[in-house]
Design a protein around this nucleic acid. Structure first.
Lengths: 136, 136
DNA sequence: AGTATTAGTCTCTTTTTGAGACCAAGTCTA
DNA sequence: TAGACTTGGTCTCAAAAAGAGACTAATACT
């Protein structure tokens, strides 16, 4: 009922029906939630090029804490994107490298990274516009 | 010096030189950090299909809080990915829709989403393997 | 009068993240 | 030989972010 003025029509649940999109129980979310952290893509980008050791990654990403580096690497390893190999030296050294699964994910992911690089200007411009307060 | 056993060689800063990759001052991070939140991709995915109103999005993503919905939408709007249009009805209704910039980002992004959907099984398998504790 | 709607904001609690000390075992330096 | 430095972490504590839920104003419906 109701029909309030010129309001756009309500289209309940159409998305769900069209592609079976149940946001609450979604395999895509299960995967994406893990790689959408602040550090995941950054570390993937590094390891996509070559294997790195713990300390090297820490120097490469200067503003990550050891705690988050450890944890993010573990998460990526758990999901099968990277491999962890311990060299029994003194002190022991640990090398992280990308798995085939990781590389297969990084392929589409790198396209997003490329987009970000290409369109950084547009995004900065949009931010400036928004911050100048023209909400008209 | 040192030369500790069979340890892989240290390749300091190679990544930086090769592609000018300064993780601390990186335009890619500036863009990625915003869209890598827990809810950003989810809302983009919804709005890529059609415009939605605030309450519709809330119902569509049942486990998002109003607070985070408001904030994530504002962030996406600020970066120019979505548009916010207020209809002066009583009570007022607000419609969110994707901008051309948003669509252009969603193109590569949807590939990652597709990958997640396709490879959910492999990721779950990797997790099971890891959790079974075979760190051999 | 009472209830429901809209799109939020405000406060309070819980979770996540960041900063930094600390660890063992060995190597290098003085 | 004492002291400092290296490795890849873990532990604790403080700060920041996120979640839960109450609350708002103006109006419509019952």
């Amino acid at each position: 009922m109701a029909s309030i003025a010129t309001r756009p029509p309500v289209l309940d649940g159409e998305i769900c029906d069209t592609r079976g999109w149940d946001a609450g129980n979604c395999p895509v979310r299960d995967v994406i939630d893990r790689i959408s952290g602040k550090w995941s893509t950054l570390l993937m980008e590094a390891l996509a090029k070559q294997p790195y050791r713990f300390g090297e990654l820490r120097r490469l990403v200067p503003d990550i804490s050891q705690r988050m580096l450890t944890q993010t690497l573990r998460d990526l390893q758990r999901d099968g994107y990277i491999d962890r190999q311990v060299f029994p030296t003194k002190p022991p050294s640990v090398e992280y490298s990308m798995t085939p699964l990781g590389r297969s994910l990084f392929e589409p992911l790198s396209k997003v990274l490329q987009w970000a690089s290409d369109n950084h200007g547009s995004v900065k411009a949009a931010r400036a516009r928004y911050d100048d307060g023209d909400l008209a």
